[in-house]
Amino acid sequence: MAEDYILVMEDIVAGYEGHKVLRGVTIKVRRGERVVVMGPSGSGKSTLLKTAVLLVKPWSGRIVLDGEEITRKGVDLRKVRAKTGFVFQSYNLFPHMTVLENIVLPQVIVKKVSREKAVEKAHQVLREVGLEGVENKYPLQLSGGQQQRVAIARALAMEPKIFFLDEPTSALDPELKEEVLNTLEKIAREGIAMLIVTHELDFAEDVADRIVFMENGVVVEEGDPHKVLYNPEKERTREFLRSIRRRRLAAPQASQE
């Protein structure tokens, strides 16, 4: 039933200025389900996420978010954004605001929450991501991993029904990756729906209920994480996973040189 799904994207075609990226993608996310999207660069993973929250407007197709079609004309974008949390690869925190203000301001001006409640919530989400004591620091005074955790906290504070994570660790060093992945695993256990683009195989295996493999703007294969990661049906998926595993094995050697 449609009500079981927090997100339904049907036959989505989308792109940028005449360049078609998504070529008819259909993807569904159940309430509380965690779906990991994998695929080579340029396969349309990030565009898929941005299209889901209408940061990129689809050329055709239909998107239903929390039972409401958001691709129809006259949809209230603020209502769409109130239900979704988005975490970007490069954190995208507001550098001129303190960590606290980054988390408080969106609650106050978008959700119209009182400042006291917003501050209380900010402290709570910062505790959740394991970042107490940085409230008065500015984003650029933090490490990349800390910045990404603040970005996660900022999105969490808005109490989204579904979380979109666009390669949240790809800009980070290995040791910083770990702290962000641990935070995400903790949030994933709380039962919030997630659509995650990542190349982290261990993380995908740990948190995903389902893995979707994309290439050239279409879904090539999807299914149970164990099956897709260890016994994929399609040769293309196998090839991609091999290349990621090779890269992972080569990485420690490269750093020793």
Partner: peptide, 28 residues
Amino acid sequence: ESQFLAAESLGFTKLQTFRYVVMPQAVR
């Protein structure tokens, strides 16, 4: 551009983006 995208993803209106995100950084 990522600053505009972040504000948009959080549900800021254009005016709020201008007032809280763009102008404080632009003035600096």
